[in-house]
Amino acid sequence: MKLTEKEIEIIEILEKDARIPTETLAKMVSLSVDETEAILKKLEETKVIVQYTALVDWRKVDGHEGVTAMIDVKVTPKRGVGFDEVAERIYRFPEVKSVYLMSGAYDLSVVIEGRSMSEIANFVSEKLSTLDSVISTTTHFILKKYKHDGTVFDQGDQDHRIVMAP
């Protein structure tokens, strides 16, 4: 789908802040509110804008820290459907947050969330590795998020000025 410069500009602004009021968005792109709303409706109907989400730092919520893991999965693709069929079987599990087709040593990268490392281990051993097409898995646990989707976590009150020395 070919988009206009204004449509791309709107998408880029919303990608950084999906909560921006339509009136402010319209001013930023030099359009009327009605024109901006029409573009938003078009982008939503054509699924260019798939969803508006909130980025949450769960470590700051007591009892909801959870565990996130990235799992490299090597699979045998099926004739006629390639990797799509096994990817679909994997992304249907509720624990799975993302599935990506990758280049390199592994075929799929799967991101899952659980309440504990043992919950993730059970998912891998009982659900993921038992799928017919799965040859092997390698699980990486995320220990700390520094930056996610362009947002830096825990910047705190640090002084970000550049130190100048004589």
Results as ranks from 00 to 15, higher is better:
residue 40 L to T: 06
residue 40 L to Y: 05
residue 42 K to R: 10
residue 42 K to N: 04
residue 42 K to A: 01
residue 43 L to P: 10
residue 43 L to Y: 04
residue 44 E to N: 04
residue 44 E to R: 09
residue 45 E to W: 01
residue 45 E to M: 06
residue 45 E to R: 08
residue 46 T to M: 05
residue 46 T to Y: 12
residue 47 K to E: 02
residue 47 K to Y: 09
residue 48 V to A: 03
residue 48 V to T: 15
residue 49 I to M: 00
residue 49 I to Q: 00
residue 50 V to D: 13
residue 50 V to C: 14
residue 50 V to K: 15
residue 52 Y to S: 00
residue 52 Y to N: 05
residue 53 T to N: 07
residue 53 T to M: 01
residue 53 T to P: 01
residue 53 T to H: 04
residue 54 A to E: 00
residue 55 L to N: 00
residue 55 L to I: 00
residue 55 L to T: 07
residue 55 L to A: 05
residue 55 L to V: 00
residue 56 V to R: 00
residue 57 D to Y: 04
residue 57 D to V: 13
residue 57 D to E: 02
residue 57 D to W: 02
residue 58 W to P: 08
residue 59 R to I: 00
residue 59 R to P: 02
residue 59 R to N: 15
residue 59 R to H: 07
residue 59 R to Q: 08
residue 60 K to I: 01
residue 61 V to H: 01
residue 61 V to K: 05
residue 62 D to Q: 11
residue 62 D to E: 13
residue 63 G to E: 07
residue 63 G to C: 03
residue 64 H to L: 09
residue 64 H to R: 13
residue 65 E to I: 01
residue 66 G to Y: 14
residue 66 G to H: 06
residue 66 G to W: 08
residue 67 V to Y: 12
residue 67 V to S: 03
residue 68 T to G: 02
residue 68 T to Y: 03
residue 69 A to H: 12
residue 70 M to Q: 12
residue 71 I to Q: 03
residue 71 I to L: 07
residue 72 D to F: 15
residue 73 V to H: 11
residue 73 V to W: 09
residue 73 V to N: 09
residue 74 K to S: 13
residue 74 K to A: 13
residue 75 V to W: 02
residue 75 V to L: 02
residue 75 V to E: 04
residue 76 T to N: 14
residue 77 P to Q: 09
residue 77 P to R: 05
residue 78 K to V: 10
residue 78 K to Q: 15
residue 78 K to M: 12
residue 78 K to Y: 06
residue 79 R to L: 13
residue 79 R to K: 13
residue 82 G to V: 04
residue 83 F to I: 14
residue 84 D to Q: 15
residue 84 D to Y: 10
residue 84 D to S: 14
residue 84 D to L: 15
residue 84 D to A: 14
residue 86 V to Q: 11
residue 87 A to Q: 06
residue 87 A to Y: 08
residue 88 E to F: 03
residue 90 I to C: 09
residue 90 I to D: 09
residue 90 I to W: 03
residue 90 I to P: 10
residue 91 Y to N: 15
residue 91 Y to R: 14
residue 91 Y to W: 15
residue 92 R to Q: 13
residue 92 R to H: 14
residue 92 R to W: 02
